[in-house]
Write a protein that binds this DNA or RNA. Structure first.
Lengths: 235, 235
DNA sequence: CGTCCAGTTGATGTAAATCAAACCCAGTGG
DNA sequence: CCACTGGGTTTGATTTACATCAACTGGACG
């Protein structure tokens, strides 16, 4: 395994911002190392599904390149994207028996697939890993609470500001304050409970206010991080 | 411990509807029994806080009577109620270091307080309990996903229908199809991302459509469960 | 018997959705 | 090399579901 890959994996486990929980102590390299030997590579075309809501969760995945989304659909087509995954993130890890969301690729994506039962044996051997998974699950629950506040009570500009800062925090390795947005405006809308048009207009508005700069449709730069953070109610 | 109380406690661990995860095997009575000996009773007046967002989570609680809410506030007063707790539910269990929501009483409430470190030692002794907690955490994550879909994409009548059915499922021991609603309309609104007025009007609308009957402000009866379920996109 | 507060109902305002039309690229193919 | 195509993006005009503002009701309680 390459050095870069190992770094990638560490980041995977720690990539979501720790909200109330501080970063847990490093899980032993040896334990995670075991995983690598046993994973198989999966390539996904744009919009292809990795698994569907309701599928048996015998496997979980690590995103190596590209981006993915986790989403729920209503019969009439209304959609909500629970979460986006960036390279290094694990997908379908916090699941018991069946997946409760559909996972799809945003653009081309490559992943590594792992057998769930291997994780189970690892957890059985290492209570520390078990505790770590629990901590992750709790941190995500906390995240979910904040997201619900956002969806239930925030305005479009607040939602966008929030989203942009979250994306910025997650793609930290990118140079400067440039945020890549691999997903479409429609995806962003479905994540924030808005429409494509409202996302567009609101981004335009943030731009005209001087908070951000739109470098291209899928790349923007934060000009006034503190003002954006205030708008997003960070802190 | 009284028979009724023991039943209560079991229900507590299993009270949230299992969404993807089936009800786990009963946790040993002996393990949970230990808790009772060590809890202390807490009485809460209406709207009194049990703990605040950010407080250290050295204790967790079981609601014995009354109802409680879990909420997050924005600086300007906007509020979202993540979840309501009914008697038998545990509060502040799935937390690592600090509470990420404020817990308050809805009306008068009585609870039992437990030391967290006791739980930790129990978990250490029983991997089964640990696995059980993890399963609960995952089930709640799944719940949260559905809730986000609701907040982001559903109309007011759909949200209300959803809420009513969830409440009905949770207060299962009540006779017939009568649903008690201990919280105010404002609370319901803050839970569903609506205002007091919209909650009122929408309930009135559901009533005029013949789906429900308003017995009093805090008690209603479902007249057409299947129609309500369809509206709520259950299934 | 007033007071209070939650609930209800009505009138009006508005943020965001919807509908509609360009626009902008990136591929594709002649 | 350039016209064509099609999906995503952007901008404008209009509609609408819900919020906001305001008035009234009705039960609980001193």
């Amino acid at each position: 395994m390459l050095r870069a890959e190992r770094r990638d994996m560490e980041r995977g486990f720690a990539s979501l911002p720790a909200v109330t929980a501080p970063a847990p102590p490093q899980v032993e390299q040896s334990e995670l190392g075991l995983l690598d030997a046993l994973g198989t590579v999966v390539l996904l075309k744009r919009d292809a599904a990795l698994f569907q809501e309701g599928d048996a969760a015998d496997c979980y995945y690590k995103l190596v390149s590209g981006a993915a989304r986790y989403c729920k659909l209503l019969a009439d087509g209304r959609r909500h994207i629970t979460e986006f995954f960036l390279s290094g993130d694990f997908i379908g890890l916090h699941v018991l028996d069946a997946h409760w969301c559909t996972a799809e690729a945003v653009g081309e994506a490559t992943l590594v697939r792992y057998e769930r039962r291997i994780l189970d044996t690892l957890v059985a051997r290492s209570p520390r890993l078990g505790k770590y998974l629990l901590a992750r699950a709790y941190a995500e629950a906390s995240e979910a609470c904040s997201r619900m506040l956002l969806l239930g009570r925030m305005t479009a500009p607040e939602r966008l500001a929030n989203f942009l800062l979250r994306m910025a925090a997650r793609s930290g390795q990118v140079k400067g304050d440039i945020i890549p947005l691999p997903m479409t405006r429609g995806d962003i809308g479905d994540h924030l409970g808005l429409t494509t048009e409202t996302v567009c207009r609101t981004l335009a508005q943030l731009k005209s206010t001087g908070l951000i700069e739109l470098r291209s449709a899928h790349e923007l730069r934060v000009l006034q991080p503190q003002a954006l953070a205030k708008l997003a109610h960070f802190g």
